[in-house]
């Protein structure tokens, strides 16, 4: 199976997960989108050396996975795929920031290594939160929620079309790649010139398809505005979800919970 087909299967898997009926899935998409936003802001707002202080935020994905009957394995692949990029960015920190700020036993640890770990942890938390939102809500309800939250219609529609035709484009790309592989069995990769013409051909097909889709829309009465359904209901439980988790994130941000917990345990010890 090609990497593109595998990625499509992963997306389909996310959609299947989003169609479950659990307490988490029944929460209003607006509440989940807002909670995720608060979570991301909280994660991003910690200082660059925060590692232990970030750990309480791990409770959020863990609870969501448990309540939403989601398999943790679906988080690993996207995180591992994006990890090299984050690693490349974070690896410069130990080189430039060599000030010793702590030590573990006799081993001194520079600020660069601490911020390196902090970046990786933030990345894992942020990507997990975004994937969990998708796996517990689905792409279309997320777009409806964004619309209700005041995101311009043109933006949410672009997202919907992008998501819908991502699959069609990916299937076409796979077919072209397969056709190339069959006629160039000894080449492991496309030559740059071939790659350029394939990309050009895909672009032209995309334009042609866009024209066909527009014609299909026109023939069904499209006048420049798409009406979307989505009368979503915001219940008390949704408000509780949003307020409860947001309060926890703010608390985790304002207070170093692991430190307070550690000090409490030490004080209790004889």
């Amino acid at each position: 199976m090609s990497p593109i087909e595998s990625a499509l299967l992963d997306l389909n898997r996310l959609e299947d997960l989003a169609r479950q009926d659990t307490a988490l899935h029944r929460i209003d998409p607006c509440a989940k989108v807002l909670t995720t936003l608060v979570f991301l802001v909280a994660v991003a707002s910690f200082n660059k050396y925060a590692v232990a202080a970030l750990l309480p935020l791990c409770i959020y994905p863990i609870v969501l996975i448990a309540v939403g009957n989601l398999q943790p394995s679906f988080l690993f692949k996207p995180i591992l795929l994006a990890l090299p990029f984050v690693f490349c960015m974070a690896i410069f920190n130990p080189l430039f920031d060599r000030v010793i700020i702590m030590s573990i036993g006799p081993a001194p640890i520079s600020g660069g290594w601490v911020s390196f770990c902090s970046i990786l942890l933030r990345f894992a938390l942020s990507v997990s939160a975004a994937l969990l939102l998708l796996a517990s809500t689905g792409f279309y309800p997320i777009c409806l929620a964004l619309r209700r939250l005041g995101v311009p219609r043109v933006f949410t529609l672009q997202l919907l079309f992008l998501y819908r035709y991502l699959f069609v484009l990916a299937e076409e790309t796979t077919r072209v790649a397969r056709a190339h592989a069959l006629r160039a069995p000894e080449q492991r990769r496309m030559k740059p010139s071939v790659f350029a013409s394939v990309v050009g051909s895909l672009l032209l097909r995309t334009l042609g398809r866009a024209r066909c889709i527009h014609t299909a829309m026109l023939s069904r009465g499209f006048t420049g505005r798409i009406s979307q359904s989505g009368q979503l209901d915001f219940y008390c439980r949704d408000a509780l979800f949003l307020v409860g988790w947001s309060a926890f994130f703010v608390m985790a941000r304002l207070f170093n919970l692991p430190q307070i917990l550690g000090e409490g345990i030490l004080n209790c010890l004889p």
């Binding site: 279309y140 079309f161 889709i213 014609t215 299909a216 829309m217 069904r220 499209f222 798409i226 359904s229």
Partner: peptide
Amino acid sequence: DDQLFMPTVEEDVAFGPRN
């Protein structure tokens, strides 16, 4: 694939009547 441009079947079939 040119005709079905909305994310779900329900939304697609509802597109014309809504317009």
